Amino acid sequence: MSALDPDLAAYFASLGTLFPPLPADPTPLERRARYWALVGLGRTPLPSSVTMNDVQLDLASGKVGVRLFYGHDGADEPVPTIIYFHGGGWVVGDADTHTVTCARLAHEANALVVSVDYPLAPEAHWRTITDACFEAASAIAADRVAQDAGAPIALAGDSAGAHLAAVTALRARDEGNFHIALQALLYPTVAPDFDTPSYSEFAAGPGLTRTDMQWYWRHFAGDDQAANDYRIAPTRAASHAGLPPAYVVTAGRDPLRDEGRSYVRQLRGAGIEVAHDEFDSLPHGFLRMAKYSAATDAAIARLNRRIGELLRASRS
């Protein structure tokens, strides 16, 4: 197995001099403040070709903001649409923390990216969060189909956002109200299982720790973590047959690595076409670390382009 990318090893070493440790059981506000600080520290310029627009959706579960990123170069039509759910353990993050990620995806995938600013736990119940994501995706898809019926649509997300993308793909299959050409799951968390080999190997990070993930799952699902409900854990769906093709990205130095690998096997076992890339030397959360590492910057460019390529291939 590859060692941690040396540039990122230096980055993680520097964090100890920049930030004091969080309390043993931080509040959601403390987690959010730390995350916003880390994102701000690593922010890179937006691609100059990308334009943005904010819209509010009035959904059954409440009002949800979305941010549209237009990265299309006009070279081919119809324009692919990527509905994006941000990471942050269902508790932290928002459209602002993932603006660079989504703008770069729009540019490098040559697509329209719609970032969903869903309600956060623990203030919002997991049912409300998953309902809001599904309702937002339904509304976005209906609008895109009305404007261009030939435009392929992807669901995408990182970490907990990948969980929400996977849940939404299952609901779209079961409730049958819109077609998804691709689910792009970037270092996904898909079940509250903390006993995998990667959870043991990377229990102390780098970055994300097993204790962190236990905290996030507790704030998202609480006492419902064991419920036999795919909105809690997509792995618990009665069947994965009939889901859209998937592109799964895992990070080699990530506690979540093995559950991502396992979901690849589960999908393939159900006959789903799955492309899988693993970046051996990178940690969880590397999408916000391009500023610090050439290897990370190259990995992000590769996965963004691949999402665009897979979406366009779905039309053929």
Rank of each mutant, 00 (worst) to 15 (best):
residue 176 G to Q: 15
residue 163 H to Y: 05
residue 143 D to T: 15
residue 177 N to L: 13
residue 154 A to I: 03
residue 158 D to Y: 07
residue 187 Y to A: 10
residue 183 Q to E: 05
residue 164 L to P: 12
residue 145 V to M: 06
residue 148 D to N: 15
residue 151 A to D: 05
residue 182 L to R: 09
residue 167 V to E: 00
residue 154 A to Q: 01
residue 173 R to E: 14
residue 189 T to G: 11
residue 167 V to M: 06
residue 169 A to Q: 06
residue 169 A to P: 08
residue 182 L to H: 06
residue 158 D to F: 03
residue 156 A to S: 13
residue 142 A to Q: 12
residue 170 L to K: 10
residue 188 P to N: 04
residue 151 A to C: 09
residue 157 G to S: 03
residue 141 A to R: 00
residue 139 A to M: 01
residue 175 E to V: 12
residue 161 G to Q: 11
residue 144 R to N: 13
residue 148 D to C: 10
residue 177 N to H: 13
residue 140 I to P: 04
residue 182 L to D: 05
residue 165 A to D: 03
residue 168 T to F: 12
residue 170 L to P: 08
residue 163 H to D: 09
residue 156 A to Y: 09
residue 153 I to V: 11
residue 180 I to A: 06
residue 183 Q to N: 01
residue 162 A to H: 02
residue 144 R to T: 15
residue 139 A to E: 12
residue 172 A to N: 02
residue 164 L to E: 04
residue 185 L to K: 01
residue 171 R to P: 10
residue 150 G to M: 11
residue 162 A to Y: 05
residue 149 A to G: 14
residue 159 S to K: 00
residue 189 T to W: 12
residue 158 D to T: 10
residue 181 A to C: 07
residue 189 T to M: 15
residue 144 R to A: 15
residue 156 A to F: 10
residue 147 Q to E: 15
residue 191 A to P: 11
residue 184 A to I: 11
residue 146 A to I: 01
residue 174 D to M: 06
residue 178 F to M: 04
residue 151 A to W: 07
residue 182 L to F: 11
residue 150 G to Q: 14
residue 192 P to G: 02
residue 170 L to V: 15
residue 168 T to K: 10
residue 185 L to N: 01
residue 169 A to I: 11
residue 173 R to W: 11
residue 153 I to W: 05
